[in-house]
Design a protein around this nucleic acid. Structure first.
Lengths: 218, 218
DNA sequence: CCTACCGATCGGTAGG
DNA sequence: CCTACCGATCGGTAGG
């Protein structure tokens, strides 16, 4: 069995193309899968993977208990799909930053500030439950899923190294680059546990504070 | 029903004092409860609370499936007991540091270094599964347990404020003290996710790197 | 995508 | 602390 089979969804081999929904308003199909993903992300984040039932998810997506398995072959495949969606989006958003024509002209501390801003938004922005699930549900992945996800995460973490190295070179960062990256991303990722948009500072102020804390310059 | 009832263990009202074990070697009783706590901490950390069965725990403590409920009234009470044990120990260890006669004479960056060192040890030291469970299983607590645990955590976090304020006063820390504490503790807490004693730096080197990263001085 | 269902497992308990 | 057990729930499936 090829590794990819572990993440297969039934929808790929049996998409009901061209069959219109019978509901009062004709919505485009295929958004049902998205609805499941969104519902799952929200519930996995709030209650955790093991404590969320497929019935919870079905209900949140306005389906009956058996229906999620029409779109995903297992609860586990649904978890993986949530995480993959989150990481793909996060990578895209950071690539937009890195490839922007002005980015290269910025001093490294401003480059880092941009990465941090996007990272906070991916973690804490409204409706962004996908990456938090990825961060906190590693344990629930199968070994083979974990291996595939590690690839995506390593790509993402790798994006941070050049700017951290540049900061190290001009002594705005003294700690070893590798450990600094682990501690820095940890500080950001942990915000998922405490950040409350109604009480805490804005994501911009948060990003500024992070720069102040980590970088030896103003 | 008084709040404390939620955390009650059966052992307190029915400790089999004076009744010797029937096994070949007479071990002191009461260590059975500790064995359960340790087994639960280890399993909760590795698999998560919801994915761990009380049968897993019983088996790891060399008991049969029903026996954990002789010592703890519910799986949930067992989780709370694990967390409480972890936080009590962490608070004790930090108090030892703070009350040491030499501590007050240290410059603030060295004071912080000491707190960080103990924190890493509480999180990453061998067999220290209790605090990691506390950090990553908040969701699994009942509302009433969460409230009680929040008290302990606030006590612990409060220990860090004076030294952070001192560092802020001498401009070794520029970020707002409140946010700095959240980010700093997040960086440390996240280490639970990646630290591998066989591959990564020693806890001492880790602590040094953290000081380098967070403090604007050497 | 729904209905109806199965087999397995799980937290917890009675009674000793 | 064990034995034997219960009621509920859960992931998943057949058949339409």
């Amino acid at each position: 069995m090829p590794p990819a089979a572990a993440f297969e969804t039934n929808a790929t081999k049996a998409r009901p193309r061209g069959r219109p929904r019978k509901s009062q308003e004709e919505r485009d199909d295929g958004n049902r899968r998205q609805a499941l993903l969104r519902a799952a992300a929200k519930l996995f984040r709030r209650k955790g993977f093991a404590a969320t039932t497929t019935r919870d998810i079905a209900s949140a997506a306005d389906m009956r208990s058996g229906s999620p398995f029409y779109h995903f072959k297992s609860k586990s495949a649904l978890l993986y799909a949530v995480m993959e969606e989150g990481m793909t989006n996060a990578l895209e958003r950071q690539h937009e930053v890195l490839l922007h024509p002005d980015y290269a002209k910025l001093p490294p501390q401003d480059q880092l500030r941009q990465l941090i801003g996007v990272h906070f938004d991916v973690l804490l922005g409204p409706g962004n439950d996908f990456v938090p699930v990825m961060l906190y549900e590693w344990r629930s992945l199968t070994a083979i899923q974990r291996k595939a996800m590690r690839q995506l995460v390593q790509n993402y973490e790798g994006l941070w190294l050049p700017v951290l190295q540049a900061l190290h070179d001009c002594e705005f960062l003294v700690a070893p680059v590798g450990i600094a990256r682990l501690l820095l991303l940890g500080a950001l990722n942990w915000s998922v546990q405490w950040y409350d948009p109604r009480k805490d500072a804005s994501l911009n102020d948060l990003s500024d504070a992070a720069i102040q804390l980590f970088i030896k310059a103003q």
